[in-house]
Amino acid sequence: CSVCSEPIMPEPGRDETVRVVALDKNFHMKCYKCEDCGKPLSIEADDNGCFPLDGHVLCRKCHTARA
């Protein structure tokens, strides 16, 4: 995971895991958050999703503030 540096592995008792890929980086679902404010990001293409800027994973509000 690009945030916590832990491997993305299935939880005990499970055969599969879910990971998020954004900007060629891999994330646990729980680690997929705005780099500035820490708001959890949605994997859907909506207002709560990722608004990347200069290689950073940001929420819409933080993207607008940086732009």
Rank of each mutant, 00 (worst) to 15 (best):
C62L: 00
V21A: 15
E11Y: 09
P10D: 14
I43H: 10
C4H: 00
C59T: 00
Y32P: 01
V57I: 10
H56S: 12
P7C: 10
P12G: 15
V3N: 08
N26Y: 13
V3C: 07
Y32S: 02
C34M: 04
P52W: 07
D36Y: 04
A45K: 15
R19K: 15
C34R: 03
R66N: 08
N26R: 09
P52A: 13
G49K: 14
K25C: 04
A67D: 15
G55L: 04
M29H: 06
C1V: 00
K61L: 07
K39E: 11
F27L: 10
I8W: 00
V57H: 03
C34Q: 01
R66T: 13
R66K: 05
V57P: 08
D36T: 08
F51W: 12
S42V: 03
C1A: 02
C59Y: 00
C34V: 00
F27V: 12
C62D: 04
R66Y: 07
G38I: 09
E11L: 08
K39M: 10
E16R: 07
C37L: 00
C59P: 01
R60N: 15
S42G: 15
G38Q: 12
G55I: 03
E35I: 05
G38H: 07
A45F: 06
P40Y: 12
K39H: 09
H63M: 09
V57K: 04
K61R: 06
K33E: 03
M29Q: 14
H63I: 04
G49I: 11
Y32F: 13
H63G: 14
K33P: 01
R19E: 15
I8L: 11
E35V: 05
E44Y: 06
D24I: 00
M29T: 13
K33L: 05
P40V: 08
V20E: 11
K61A: 10
G49T: 11
H56A: 12
C34K: 01
C59R: 00
H28P: 01
D24Y: 03
G49L: 06
H63Y: 07
R14D: 13
A45H: 15
G13M: 09
V57T: 08
V20F: 04
E6M: 07
K33T: 08
P10M: 15
E6R: 14
P52K: 09
L53H: 09
R14C: 13
C4V: 00
P40S: 14
S2A: 06
P10T: 15
R60G: 05
S42A: 10
D36F: 03
L41K: 04
Y32M: 04
H28V: 01
A22E: 14
C37Y: 01
T64K: 11
C50E: 04
R60P: 04
D15A: 05
R66F: 06
P40R: 10
C37S: 01
L41I: 05
G38L: 07
K33Q: 10
E44M: 05
L53C: 07
P7L: 08
H56N: 06
N26A: 13
C59Q: 01
A65S: 12
I43K: 15
S42D: 07
C4E: 01
C59D: 03
S2Q: 01
A67I: 15
C31D: 04
A22G: 12
C31W: 01
D24S: 13
S42Y: 01
D54E: 08
C31F: 13
R60C: 13
C31H: 03
C37D: 00
K30Y: 08
R60K: 13
P40H: 07
D15T: 04
G38C: 12
C4I: 00
K39F: 04
L41R: 03
G55K: 13
A65G: 14
R66A: 15
R66W: 08
R19S: 11
L53W: 12
P12Q: 10
K30G: 11
A65M: 12
N26G: 04
E11Q: 08
E16A: 11
C31M: 01
C4R: 00
G38N: 15
A22D: 07
C1W: 00
P10I: 07
T64F: 11
H28G: 00
A22S: 14
G13K: 08
L41T: 01
I43S: 14
P7D: 15
K61E: 15
R66Q: 14
K30N: 10
D47M: 08
T64N: 07
R66S: 13
M29N: 15
E16I: 02
F51G: 08
D36V: 07
A65Y: 13
L53Q: 05
E35G: 05
L41N: 02
C31K: 01
H28Q: 00
T17A: 09
E16Y: 02
P10R: 15
D54G: 08
L58F: 12
C1L: 02
C50S: 10
D47R: 10
Y32T: 02
C59N: 01
K25P: 00
P52V: 14
I43F: 06
P40G: 14
S5I: 03
P40W: 04
C37P: 00
M29W: 08
D47K: 09
C34A: 02
V21W: 10
V57R: 07
H56Q: 12
S2N: 09
D54R: 04
G38V: 09
V21L: 14
K30V: 06
P10S: 10
S5D: 12
L53R: 10
H56P: 02
K25S: 05
H63W: 06
E16Q: 05
D15H: 09
K30R: 12
C1E: 03
A45L: 07
K33M: 10
C1D: 03
E44F: 02
V20L: 15
R14W: 04
K33V: 08
V57A: 14
C1Q: 02
F51P: 06
V18L: 13
G49V: 07
P7F: 07
H56R: 13
A45N: 14
S5G: 06
E44C: 06
D15R: 09
C50W: 04
A67V: 06
K61W: 11
R14Q: 05
P10F: 13
F51H: 11
I43W: 04
E6L: 08
A67R: 13
C37E: 02
S2L: 01
I43L: 09
D54S: 06
Y32G: 01
H28R: 00
A65C: 12
N48L: 09
M9I: 07
A22H: 06
Y32L: 11
K33G: 05
P12V: 10
R60H: 09
V20H: 07
L53N: 11
R60A: 15
H63D: 04
E35T: 09
D24C: 02
N48A: 08
L23A: 10
V21C: 14
T64P: 06
A22N: 07
S5R: 12
P10G: 15
C34I: 06
K39R: 09
I8K: 03
G49N: 10
Y32W: 07
I43E: 14
S2E: 05
S42P: 11
D24M: 06
E44D: 07
V18D: 15
C34D: 02
C37V: 01
M9A: 08
P40M: 13
C62M: 00
S5T: 02
A67F: 04
M29F: 07
T17M: 14
